[in-house]
Design a protein around this nucleic acid. Structure first.
Lengths: 230, 230
DNA sequence: GCATTCTGTGACGGTTCGGTGACAGAGGTC
DNA sequence: GACCTCTGTCACCGAACCGTCACAGAATGC
């Protein structure tokens, strides 16, 4: 099955030891993990990989966590993710400020691993409600993962396995622009190496299939960035 | 004994001891049992194995049973199962909340094994009347589990035992795509090891039998995924 | 305008996947 | 024992699918 079923958690912390610890625990719990050591990197990862949950350290070098949080929320794609602020201070005012800035949740050190995982799962549920098995609906497109069927305005379309997974990924966050790398990761799996141009070809094939029975091209090419479904 | 005729009960409880106890009692009563220790796992099992009854502990770690229940009901496949909430509290408000969330029944600890089994059977009858000897009907196909007979457009077909079980499994959720692994699990049993290609061969034999007296092939092959009955 | 970069797409070789006939073994029946 | 049915595995073939490339055309920058 495709990787895209496993939720992605982004850990933003400047301490390598903290990142390693969090990654370890999260991966042990079955999540995919991406890391970033500062706000800039975090923004990059968010635009590339569209994480589902972001664990954001309050005390970051150069740019404060709050600022990063604000930017993440402002950035397209970041708005889809749940942001959990991690802070050493249990100060109430910090908490309020964090949540005001757009954080979805707030957790103070020291915390237990279970507590952390609980927060991540809880936010994940909110952000990505029970995706498995749910019928996806975007515009005149309908994708039923369980029956493995795709319809456009009622008419059934025939897609190959890769096109099917590609369309699932695109339909999960309509409007979002996916880089080729992100799509490779989600549709092909992160350990497989294939050329990024392969994505182009499959997007082409997907377009052909989607327009086989008429209708506009629902896939938008963003030059220099990637593709999105509208 | 035909595997797919045996109802599947999913036990969701975070306590290993509870799971073991319930499994033991349910299996002794002739049910097949699957277990899950949290909501996430439960959702997975539901989408993979399509249980008939779900015994859901109210007090789950991290995610409350209510939340899990809501998600199960929302998920395709979960809606077909009866959900019985198991709670330590006999509180009336809890009961109401549970039922409001979509639970089909409610049982409070302490309960006797007989009481538990009675509830499971009662809900099973409601949810899967086929158990009571009711025939399965899909398109022009009719399968009578009790009489062990299959008809297509009135004409009786001859199926071997494995083909019969295979068809029962497929007919239980028409349209749903079953992976070879899921079918092996359901038709052959989870402890038996046979090659997944064996499924192909039996699908072939089943098709042959189904089309012996004319008619289209009712089984759809989904490349890279599995089979489904339409 | 021109040069450059990026994208769409047809073609192609190679691979994987699924259908099927053949076969040997297990188990049951007479 | 002699049949018969059913089962799981294998080998083979054809079809579907995949990844890459080359080239043309579009978009962008200067």
């Amino acid at each position: 099955m495709s990787r895209s079923d496993t939720p992605l958690v982004l850990v933003v912390d400047d301490e390598p030891a903290q990142r390693a610890l969090l990654s370890y625990n999260l991966e042990a719990a079955g999540f995919r993990v991406a890391t970033a050591s500062d706000g800039e990197e975090a923004l990059l990862v968010v635009s590339e990989e569209a994480p589902d949950v972001i664990l954001l350290d309050w005390m970051l070098p150069r740019v404060s966590g709050i600022e990063v949080c604000r930017q993440l929320k402002a950035q397209r794609g970041g708005a889809d993710a749940a942001i959990i602020m991690v802070s050493a201070r249990s100060d109430e005012s910090d908490r309020v400020r964090g949540l005001e800035t757009g954080a979805d949740d707030y957790i103070t050190k020291p915390y237990s691993v279970n507590e952390l995982l609980a927060r991540v799962r809880a936010n994940l549920r909110r952000v990505r409600p029970a995706r498995a098995g749910q019928v996806l609906d975007v515009g005149d497109l309908t994708l039923d993962p369980e029956a493995h069927r795709v319809h456009r305005s009622g008419a059934e379309l025939h897609l190959g396995p890769t096109e099917f997974r590609l369309l699932s990924a695109l339909m999960e966050k309509p409007g979002r622009v996916w880089t080729r790398e992100a799509l490779l990761d989600r549709v092909w799996g992160r350990d497989i190496y294939v050329d990024t141009r392969t994505v182009d070809v499959h997007i082409g094939r997907l377009r052909k299939a989607l327009m086989a029975q008429g209708g506009d091209d629902p896939i938008r090419t963003v030059r220099g960035a990637g593709y999105s479904l509208d």
